[in-house]
Amino acid sequence: MRSASQLKFGEKVLIKNIDSSHPSSRRILEIGFTPGQEIELMNVSTFNDPLAFSIRGTLIALRRNEADCIEVE
């Protein structure tokens, strides 16, 4: 199972599941990362963390460990 933190630049994938055991999982869902949505890795900060994804027409920056709880296809 791949997570969003393992995406390559420009790769568009669908979200499969959000790991509900992660403490940030609820906020991640609320901000729009729901299963079935398409995401794309847009930018990576200098130390490979945080990552910026495009989701639902906007850019959201997440820490790498938070992107880990987004399982993708």
Binding site: S24, R27, P50, T58, L59, A61, L62, E66
Partner: peptide, 11 residues
């Protein structure tokens, strides 16, 4: 507290 960084990057 759960340390977290979730931020919308506006256009």
């Amino acid at each position: 507290d759960n340390s977290s960084f979730i931020l919308e990057l506006p256009a």
